[in-house]
């Protein structure tokens, strides 16, 4: 007789015990090192292996690099990034031309290809340019904002005349003094280095402006003011502005500069020294009776 219920009818009950291999497998899975290796190490290995295998071939590598370069170039060559115009502001027309020549850009060009830092350095190499600011504006315009150097004095050297700005930096050359009669003149070795001092002296000596012909740097150390009638004022190396102010006070009181004097030596502050012209000397000696009076003949 057959058993009636269906559980007994089955061919043997399922063995609940795991097989040796499934038991081992489960233990392996519970091993921390194995889990880390399998979950992290294996994917990394596979990915890197696949990439390595793919890149083993030179031509593939080159093709990949070329694809990347092409993509980049396509992107950079888009019209949005194209610069077709240079706009220079804050420069005189001659300087603007010089800057254009100096920039030397073949337009239109992609803004990625323009090395703004180098272009700026190139522009700032120009003596007449103090500061240059470059930026690529919308609409494909390369905006160049220029701050020009303003010449405040002339520096005469043996072979030429240079215009200097307030810092003593060369702005441009002149062919003749008469091109810029409005600017004061300085001369002498190292005069450009001490240009700010020269400016201060000139400012202090402004009452004499009509008479000043220029300043001469003596021995790259101190200044001489050269006036017309070949008069010279020798200023000390230290604190020349104070000396000028003293001289002006002296001049105001005694009208010293109007006299027949070749030079006023202010190098020692406590003891100004006057050098007379030979004619004046003679006159003094005569007045003192040391010299026979000039014959009426």
């Amino acid at each position: 007789m057959q058993p009636l219920n269906r559980h007994a009818n089955r061919a043997g009950r399922r063995d609940p015990a795991p097989s040796r291999w499934s038991y081992r497998m489960q233990r392996l899975w519970l091993t921390p090192v194995f889990r880390v290796l399998f979950r992290f190490g294996l994917p990394v290995f596979v990915v890197f292996g696949a990439i390595g295998l793919y890149l083993q071939d030179d031509t593939r590598r080159a093709a990949l690099a070329q694809t990347f370069i092409d993509l980049r170039e396509d992107f950079q060559a888009r019209p949005e990034f194209r610069v077709s115009l240079v706009s220079i502001e804050g420069a005189s027309p001659e300087l603007a031309d010089a800057i254009r020549a100096r920039l030397n850009l073949t337009l239109p060009q992609s803004s990625f290809d323009i090395d703004l830092a180098a272009a700026r350095a190139r522009i700032e190499d120009l003596d007449a340019v103090e500061v240059a600011e470059l930026k690529v504006r919308t609409g494909g315009v390369l905006q160049v904002d220029i701050t020009e150097r303003t010449p405040v004095m002339l520096w005469r050297t043996a072979d030429r005349i240079d215009m200097l700005d307030a810092g003593g930096f060369r702005v441009a050359s002149l062919t003749a003094r008469s091109d810029r009669p409005d600017l004061p003149l300085i001369a002498g070795e190292g005069a450009d280095v001490a240009a700010d001092e020269a400016m201060a002296i000139l400012a202090a000596a402004s009452p004499l402006e009509a008479r000043i012909r220029g300043l001469v740097r003596m021995g790259a150390r101190r200044w001489d003011i050269v006036l017309d009638r070949d008069q010279r004022i020798l200023l000390p190396a230290e604190n020349p502005v104070a000396a000028v102010e003293r001289l002006l006070a002296l001049d105001q009181v005694q009208d010293i500069l109007a006299r027949d004097i070749a030079a006023i030596d202010l190098r020692i502050a406590a003891r100004p020294v006057l050098r007379l012209t030979p004619h004046a000397q003679l006159q003094i000696r005569r007045a003192q009776g040391l010299e026979p009076p000039e014959s009426e003949l």
Partner: peptide
């Protein structure tokens, strides 16, 4: 094996 596996699990 049965118990060891279940307990480890």
């Amino acid at each position: 094996r049965t118990v060891a596996q279940a307990a480890q699990k």
